[in-house]
């Protein structure tokens, strides 16, 4: 990440220790993950120990130290989705993309994650890709859904509950 860019983020947050989470969110918003070099630079500039930063980064699930794909796939494994067959969907995604949970595909297109509830149980089993929700997913539909994203046609479908 470019040093000028980090500096502008730090300036926006007025070099405050208390805004470390906001700073890292901004970095992650640009890079999709937190590069080690950037964190070392932030630690030096803020005069905040690297152990403290590492503690925060590893504490919050929203932060990632490894590069993530352009599209985040969140497979809901909550009660309703689990009963609706979320595990079969998950298996199918794993096989199609050749990744496990928490991993990113080689072309940096998708990252796979499981979540415990997306709060839209009426749409079960639900999968969130980026900002879009896909409801009543069955393993047979998955290839089509993923193909749309790989081809660059992002479907705009937001849950209406």
């Amino acid at each position: 990440m470019k040093i000028e860019k980090i500096d502008s983020i730090l300036k926006k947050h007025e070099y405050r220790h208390s805004e470390i989470i906001g700073i890292m969110q901004d970095v992650q918003g640009i890079e999709n993950y937190l590069p080690e070099g950037t964190l070392r630079y932030i630690s030096e500039k803020l005069e905040l120990s690297l152990t403290r930063i590492f503690d925060i980064v590893t504490f919050y699930k929203a932060f990632s130290l490894v590069p993530r794909g352009r599209h985040m796939i969140k497979v809901c494994c909550g009660t309703a989705c689990h009963l609706g067959g979320a595990m079969q969907n998950l298996d199918r995604i794993k096989r199609t993309l050749h990744v496990r949970e928490g991993e990113t595909t080689e072309d940096r297109m998708f990252s796979l994650e499981t979540v415990n509830c997306l709060g839209t149980c009426a749409l079960a089993p639900v999968i969130q890709i980026g900002e879009d929700y896909h409801d009543a997913v069955i393993p047979g539909k998955i290839d089509n859904i993923l193909a749309a994203y790989s081809a660059g046609h992002e479907r705009q479908e937001v849950a209406t509950d």
Binding site: S49, T51, I53, D55, L65
Partner: peptide, 25 residues
Amino acid sequence: CEEVVGVSAIGLANRGIDREVATPF
């Protein structure tokens, strides 16, 4: 390490059952 030695070489990382003492990265 942080308060008396003043170097912060070790810290706590992760959370829940995975929480452990670790060095950065």
